[in-house]
Amino acid sequence: MGRPDSGLAMLLVMFAVYAAEPNPDDPLAALTVGERPDPVAPDGWVEVDVRAASLNMHDLWTLKGVGIKAERFPMILGCDGAGTLADGTEVVIHSVIGDPAWTGEETLDPKRTLLTELHQGTFADKVVVPARNVLPKPADLSFSEAACMGTAWLTAYRMLFVKSGLRPGQTMLVQGASGGVSTALIELGRAAGLRVWVTGRTEEKRALATELGAHAVFESGARLPEKVDGVFETVGKATWSHSMRALRPGGVIVVSGSTSGPDPSADLQRLFFLQLSVIGSTMGTRDELADLMSFCATAGIRPRIGSELPMADARAGFEAMQAGETAGKIVFTR
Rank of each mutant, 00 (worst) to 15 (best):
L224Q: 08
G236P: 08
D87R: 01
C79Y: 13
T151R: 07
S243N: 14
L12K: 11
A192T: 01
Y157H: 14
P110W: 11
L8Q: 12
W102Y: 15
G78P: 09
R36N: 00
L194R: 03
S142P: 02
W197Q: 09
A299L: 04
G150H: 09
W197E: 07
L292S: 03
D109S: 03
A53E: 08
F123P: 03
W61C: 00
G221N: 07
E145D: 13
P74I: 03
V48L: 10
S294H: 12
E71T: 02
C79E: 12
A156N: 08
V66I: 15
W102Q: 02
T116L: 04
A20I: 00
L212N: 02
P225I: 00
F73I: 06
V255E: 13
G280K: 06
P130M: 05
G200V: 02
A152S: 14
R206E: 11
G213T: 05
K64F: 04
A16Q: 02
R286Y: 07
M75P: 03
V129N: 08
S294I: 06
D26A: 13
K163V: 14
T202M: 11
T122C: 15
R206A: 08
R3D: 10
V128T: 15
L208R: 06
T32L: 01
T199L: 09
M283E: 09
V254R: 05
L114F: 14
R158H: 15
L8V: 12
S144N: 06
V46I: 13
C296N: 06
S164E: 05
T122R: 05
H242G: 05
F143M: 02
I301K: 03
A314F: 09
P110S: 06
G284W: 11
T282Y: 15
L309S: 01
F295L: 14
A101L: 12
T32F: 05
A53F: 11
R286N: 10
G261D: 11
L309P: 04
S277D: 14
G221C: 04
M10L: 15
T32I: 07
A9M: 12
E187D: 00
L28A: 05
R286L: 14
A177L: 10
F123E: 11
R286P: 09
M321S: 11
C148W: 04
G180A: 04
A124L: 11
W153M: 15
V40T: 14
C79S: 13
S243I: 00
A139D: 15
L271W: 14
M321Y: 07
W45I: 01
V48I: 14
G150V: 03
A9N: 06
M57C: 00
A52E: 10
P310A: 10
G250D: 05
L60Q: 02
C296Y: 09
I253Q: 00
G193H: 09
R302I: 01
G34S: 08
G78N: 09
M149Q: 13
P110D: 11
M283C: 10
E21S: 07
D43Q: 12
L292V: 03
P262A: 11
A207I: 00
D99N: 15
M57W: 15
I253D: 03
P4D: 14
E71S: 10
P130A: 07
P225Q: 05
P42Q: 09
M321V: 04
D267R: 13
